[in-house]
Design a protein around this nucleic acid. Structure first.
Lengths: 221, 221
DNA sequence: TTTGTATGATGAATATTTTAGTAGTAGAAG
DNA sequence: CTTCTACTACTAAAATATTCATCATACAAA
């Protein structure tokens, strides 16, 4: 199930959106001031966020910028009365994915939400790569339909690498993003865990999809 | 270096878009009827496409649907006078990524194009020169679609030289930028690595794009 | 205890640099 | 025009350095 964060202070729209979106089957969280919005956005994982611009506490624009700075790439749609071209551009430059002016058609909003979800859908729910299936919700990994138990860190590492499919992840990237260590990149942990994953999933060092890029890091093909 | 396909029949808008986008540094192809548009869209690879809805031959909506059916996932922005909510939804459902109603602001269009390009950019960082393709994300090099393994330093050197395409890189430049050595420019390393690259990529000393400039350094044509 | 996570040591594989011999080039002198 | 000389580049192979996989083990949390 897809979950949506709505940050909106006007009680009328607030209620209308929550009800309308829930009827469509989305799980909706609502925040009615900027700080609460940012806190929810950073603390929990959403599939998409709808932001008003003018909010008590902190503006939607500011929330958007801060999220992008922290590399939280959840799609953001602005939903605002600020309707000039200049403001639209500013909102999009801040990192938003779409910008809808009030008053808006709920049907169009729904469709624009779906457009954004099309892009992320692939990377939520579950990922399949070769004979490996990864269920991101259940935190389960299957190899040829047989469940393979990965530990927490092994799972996180695998997901991180697969999410960056096609990009080389440097050791620094990995240690920062997966272990959240921002100094001393020089432990052998990564090697050990990669090794563990390869062993459990029976991935060949040479031919498997999880490749070593010597001197740099690792890459999922 | 992004290229855009514009499918639009009205000569005025047609010209205006081509010129405006080219001024922004995009490579623009224009088609003025539906069939030609589809042919270009399927035959060549674009980073983004702008489609009018009403077109002679085949509608933009139809083009969009056909492309999605063939799993061509290039971002599509509709740019059309069809301005009802119902039509907007129909356009987005057909697989478009954004829908802009005429008359539109060129500045806003530019920004919305950038939004779409943000998504693809990551996977598009590659350089092609003759029959050699260099994927900067995956750190991979292909010659005639076959992967050639270069070591870290070989890769760095090649990228450095290619990034300075057309400019002669002196030995000093190279040793400073690629090796980060700021004294003792007189080792034979560069020669050795150039030699290695030429060998692996099968570049002829005389005719290949990686040329020796005697007494100075090297040059990529 | 059991399970998950991190560290350190080892050796093998691979990358980088140095060295040295060969070959090619340009300018000067015969 | 040829030959000599000094210089520069090319190449292979040897020497050195780095990186990774693996194992054993230690520590921490459940």
């Amino acid at each position: 199930m897809m979950n949506i964060l709505v940050v909106e202070d006007e009680p009328g729209i607030h209620k209308f959106l929550k009800q309308g979106l829930e009827e469509e089957g989305y799980a909706v969280d609502v925040a009615d001031d900027g700080h609460q919005g940012l806190a929810l956005a950073t603390g929990k994982s959403y599939h998409i966020m709808l932001l008003d611009w003018m909010l008590p506490g902190m503006s939607g624009l500011e929330i958007c910028k801060q999220l992008r700075e922290r590399h939280i790439d959840t799609p953001i749609i602005f939903l605002t009365a600020k309707d000039t071209i200049q403001e639209t551009i500013e909102g999009l430059q801040a990192g938003a994915n779409d910008y809808i002016k009030k008053p808006f058609s709920f049907e169009e909003l729904l469709e624009r939400i779906r457009v954004q979800l099309r892009n992320v859908k692939v990377s939520t729910e579950s990922i399949i790569i070769e004979n490996i299936k990864i269920d991101l919700n259940a935190h389960q990994v299957f190899k040829d339909e047989v469940e393979i138990h990965l530990t927490q860190k092994e799972f996180e590492l695998l997901v991180f690498l697969i999410r960056n499919q096609g990009k080389v992840c440097t050791r620094k990237d990995i240690i920062e993003q997966v272990w959240d260590i921002h100094f001393d990149y020089d432990t052998g942990v990564i090697d050990v865990f990669v090794n563990g994953i390869r062993k459990k999933l029976d991935l060949d060092k040479e031919t498997g999809f999880l490749q070593t890029i010597r001197g740099i890091g690792y890459l999922v093909r």
